[in-house]
Each structure stands twice: as structure tokens, then as C-alpha cells.
Design a protein around this nucleic acid. Structure first.
Lengths: 337, 337
DNA sequence: CTGTTAGCGCCTTCAT
DNA sequence: ATGAAGGCGCTAACAG
């Protein structure tokens, strides 16, 4: 059994109330007793029982993190950031992953709701109504990379539209006109935004109809691989491919390599996310870098502020975190016109 | 305020004890009252307060996971697995990352100890004495990929030695003799084991002295990049490079590509871990695949069994999880003798 | 079968 | 300044 406040009190020869007061600096205690208590606590290695505290304060000291399936570098970086930010605030991180559907999110949120003080939720696959329906929690929620505007929660999103538009524009500036797009999962808001950015950039360049240039894909390497095969087999002969994200782009590059098509000389390729994998790819990959660290830190900061009562109720924020265009060798060769 | 057992009792017109009995199926309750309670609980959306339960049972329903810095796919896959296994057992996962030194692990473990029922710790950088010193916890611990034999804890490791030896042997079989090794962080037990496997395989092939073939490196892409530059600049002209892990190998390949050296035609490259990144690399990377899923599932299973009292005290297990040699294009070309 | 009660460990009035 | 006592939400033993 663990050492309790009673043990400390007995050893110090005082009451538990005194121990509590000393350890929390809650009010004056005679110096000699104070020292006695401190010594006893140290000797016994006492630390208060979190469950008891939690029962009393209605605070768990924990932050919940709900994610879709966590594959790859993006998520490890996100968790790293969140963990760091949480630790700075003496909060622990409780994670729950692999949620794809509204029902799974619902269940996980209900389960976590009572065990955490606040929730960080990344649910790109959920639209605003679905997100609203999972929002029946006691704990405040911050959505990340989730299109949940108008909900009673803070929402921090990457500029998926702007990043995609910038990438497309970069490709156009290189002289490309036939730019194929590998779509992300169109159930996901971020993927839809990226597609929209691409289409708007193309339209602004006078290319209104991109139907033939758009190919089904996804966020995994395999998706990019398959899409690239389809693109090559199709009648369109694009000079550039904009992939749904970096992993997808890596699959595209892998397929092109297998097919003996040179990147970027025959086909330029660009990704999205700015992973380290993109930097060290062969060839290094042009991409739009999202600042995972920044969005994570903002989310935790916001949650902590709300928990501390520093934010007025009903004051919800909706921020767009900018992304950076990073040009590398995979799009380095301009098209000879 | 949250709905408590009293609310349910009042609404159902029974005592709180009856509610508890119904909800836990702990003993017989008259059918009509049972239904009343069930209905009231459902209407109110009641679920017991975890903190109260925890205070009573001395169980938190949580598993703690302590990791070194979590970068990349390896960790996201591990967390995925652990989360899945935890959820099957109705446990939540509490994670704490970025621990590099004994002191950091120590602190994190003390902090988590009271909040979780069991701990999964991956601390490759810690030797057995250091691991022993952090082991002053009330909760049972399972070490993963940590060289902590002889400690009062279960230890599940990958066969780092065997995998590395198999990779080296594969390279030797391809006709390579000058096989350079990029070392992992030699403070880490797994990296030391991999180096040992390499040396033993080389020695068995009659190459006793590998000093000149070994280069400082690390587990990140940058480490591989820098090491490859050093290797190329050195007087040894290896025909193959065995990297500390897949990320390191990707850095090596990236550097060789930058230097205009063809892989595998001029230099073959192999990694370790079996990440998806290796599969989709250009060229696809030969590697030794570790089964993260298996080690994660085993760890959780062992912890759960111990928490359920199914394991005799003091019965600690030390298992080595085998790794699979995966041969791909990066080592496909035999050396012409 | 069911209601009452005693804690689990802690903080916070309320007395002293 | 300090000790005693109540109660956070819940389960388990104890009465009825």
C-alpha cells in the first residue's frame, strides 16, 4: 500500500490537516511543525493520491488526445509536441487513436470525457454536423485540422487550401500545364480543401476543367503508387503530379521509378506536409510544410487557458495556421515550352 | 455538475446500493426495480466517476507508456498497437515521451506511477543498472527493446543481434567483403547489439578487424547522410553499407544520390526496422523487419495478465522477438568478383 | 432482496 | 495556529 497523508501526519506527530496545510502552503503553520512535516513527507516519499485529488477538485490533470489512425511521422511529431506542451503544464497525456467514424469518435470521447480535463481532437474525416454530434462532452474541446467551424469549440486548421494553391502555382510557374492531382480521401475536409486549392489555381491559370487530371488516391504510400500507375496508363500525359500528401508523393515517385520514368525530368512531383521523409527522398521532394509543432502548442495553450478560466465562456477561436512552400529537386526542372 | 449514483437512485426511487448492484450485476435485485434503475441510468446518461472508482479499487484503468524521443514511423506504429491492445482491455493509454536520460525517466515514472496500473517502458539508452534505478515503482513494468535483463520486470527485446548478423551475412553472400557499418548511438543497447551482430558475421567470414569499416552515425536521416559523406571521403572504398536503421539508411542513400553514386550498382545499402519508408524508397531498401505489433501486443498482454493476478510474483520473462530479413533492390546487385 | 453505513485519501470549513 | 469532522462518488459489508 502506498503512503498516505495519515502516515506523514503520524510520523510528524501532527494532524492530517496540518500536513495538508504545509504541503499546499495554504496557511500559516508554526515553523518547527512545518519542518517536521516536510521531513516526514520527504522520508516517506509521500505524494498525494491523484484519484483522491481528482474526486475532490473535479480535475484530473490529464489532457485527452483523439486521433484518426496514427500512421507515420506526422503523428509522432504531433504527439511529441503535445506531450511537451502538456508536461510544461504538469498535465498528462491520454491518447486514443484509430478512430475513423463518427461512432468511434463518439464512444472514445464519452469514455475519455470523465477522465480528462480537456480534449484535443483531430477528426478530418468528420464534417461539421458530425463533429457537432460528438461534442456532448463536459470537457472543453479543441479541434485540430478538422472542419468544424461554428461549433462551440476552438478550431485550429492548417491552410490546406492555400498550401495546395501555392504548390499548384509553383508548378504552373515552372511551365507545367498538365498537372495531375492525386486526390486525398474525399471524405476528409483537409483533402477537399487541398483539391479546392488546386482547382482554383488551375482555373486562375485558365485551366477550368481539371476532371481528367484528377485521380483517386489517398494519404498512404500505396495510394500514391496505385494512382501513379493509373496516371501513366491513362491518356493524359501530365508533366507534373501534385500528390495528396508527402507519403502519397513517395508512392508516386516509387511507382514512377519502377516504371522507369525520371523525376523530375519526365514528370515533376510535389507532396504536402513537409515531413523529413520528403527532405531525404530521392529526389528530395517539393512540398508544403505544415507546422505541427505550432498547431499542437496553440491547441494545448488554448485548452490550458480555458481550464484556468482565462477565457470567457462561449468565446471560441478559429485560426488558420499558414503553411510554407518548400521547393526541392522533385520539381526543379522547368518544362521546356 | 456530472450525474452521480445518487441522481440515478433518486430518479429510480431506490437506494444507491441498489443502483450499484444493478449496474454491476453484483447480486440479485427484484426485476421491476432493476428495470427502473436501468432506465434511470440510461435517461440520465449515467456513468460512474472513474476517480471514485480508482480511489476505491486502487486501480486507475490506465497503462503508462514511457518512450525516448518519438520520431517517425516506428513510434507511431508502436503507439497504434499499444492503443489497440489497451482498448481491448478497456484500459486507457497515458504516454510520456522524449526521455533520454535516467533522470528524465526517473521523474516521469514517479509521476506516472500513481496514475497508472502498469508501465511499458522503452529505454534503449539505459543500461541494466540505470534501468534498475528507475524501477522503484508500485506498478508492474514491462521493458521493451531495453537491455534490462535480471531486473524484476519483464523484458521483451527484438533480436537486434540476429537481424544485424543476418543482414551482414546477406551482404557477404552477395559477394561483398568491404562492408561499412554506420553505427547507431553507442549509448543504446540495441545499437550495440546490432554492431555486435555485424562484427560476428564479418569475423565468421574471416574479416576480423572491422575498425576501419565502422563509422559514427545515429538513428536519424541526418546521421546517415553525414556518415555516408564521411565514408565516401575516406580511404576505404566499401561496396556495401549497413546502416544503423532504416532512417539512417535513407540518409545514406540520399547522400550517395547527391554525390552521384548509384545504389546498388556502386554501393549496396541496407537498413534495419522494416519501415514502410524502406519499402517505398528509391530504390526499395533491404532491411530487417521488426514486428512492432507483436512486441506491443505481447507487452500489453503480459501486463494485463499480471494485473489480473494471473502471474506469480517474481516470475519475470525475458523474450527475444525474431526479426525478418527483407531483401529488396538496394542490395540486389551481386558484386562481380 | 434492499437500505444504511463505513471508509478509499484528501482538502476545507468549523471549532478550539 | 491547529485538530476534528464532513464530504467528493462509489462499493462492500452489515443489518434488516
Amino acid at each position: 500500500m502506498s503512503v498516505t497523508i495519515h502516515d506523514v501526519a503520524r510520523r510528524a506527530g501532527v494532524s492530517i490537516a496540518t500536513v495538508s496545510r504545509v504541503l499546499n502552503n495554504t496557511c500559516k503553520v508554526r515553523e518547527d511543525k512545518r519542518l517536521l512535516v516536510l521531513e516526514a513527507a520527504r522520508d516517506l516519499g509521500y505524494s498525494p493520491n491523484p484519484a483522491a485529488l481528482s474526486l475532490l477538485n473535479k480535475k484530473t490533470g490529464a489532457l485527452g488526445v483523439l486521433l484518426p489512425s496514427v500512421h507515420g511521422e506526422f503523428f509522432s511529431e504531433l504527439l511529441n509536441t503535445l506531450d511537451e506542451a502538456a508536461r510544461e503544464n504538469e498535465l498528462i497525456l491520454v491518447i486514443s487513436t484509430s478512430h475513423r467514424h463518427e461512432a468511434e469518435f463518439q464512444k472514445a470521447m464519452q469514455f475519455l470525457d470523465k477522465r480528462v480535463d480537456g480534449l484535443i481532437v483531430m477528426a478530418p474525416e468528420l464534417d461539421a454536423p458530425a463533429a457537432a454530434s460528438i461534442l456532448h462532452t463536459g470537457a472543453p474541446v479543441v479541434f485540430i485540422n478538422t472542419y468544424a467551424e461554428g461549433l462551440p469549440a476552438d478550431v485550429f486548421n492548417f491552410d490546406n487550401y492555400g498550401g495546395s494553391r501555392a504548390l499548384t502555382q509553383h508548378l504552373l510557374d515552372q511551365g507545367h500545364r498538365k498537372i495531375a492531382l492525386v486526390l486525398g480521401p474525399q471524405t476528409a475536409g483537409d483533402a477537399k480543401e487541398r483539391a479546392r486549392g488546386y482547382r482554383d489555381a488551375m482555373a486562375a491559370a485558365g485551366i477550368e476543367d481539371t476532371d481528367e487530371l484528377e485521380f483517386e488516391g489517398g494519404y498512404d504510400r500505396k495510394d500514391g503508387f496505385v494512382a501513379a500507375e493509373a496516371i501513366v496508363a491513362s491518356t493524359v500525359r501530365p508533366t507534373a503530379i501534385l500528390a495528396a500528401n508527402d507519403y502519397c508523393a513517395m508512392g508516386v515517385v516509387s511507382a514512377l521509378h519502377t516504371l522507369g520514368i525520371a523525376v523530375p525530368d519526365e514528370i515533376a512531383v510535389a507532396g504536402f506536409d513537409g515531413l523529413m521523409s520528403a527532405k531525404y527522398g530521392v529526389p528530395p521532394l517539393t512540398t508544403a510544410r505544415v507546422s505541427i509543432g505550432e498547431i499542437g502548442a496553440r491547441a494545448v495553450g488554448r485548452l490550458v487557458a480555458r481550464l484556468n478560466g482565462e477565457l470567457p465562456e462561449g468565446d471560441f477561436d478559429h485560426q488558420v495556421v499558414p503553411v510554407d512552400l518548400v521547393v526541392r529537386a522533385s520539381t526543379a526542372t522547368p518544362v521546356s515550352v
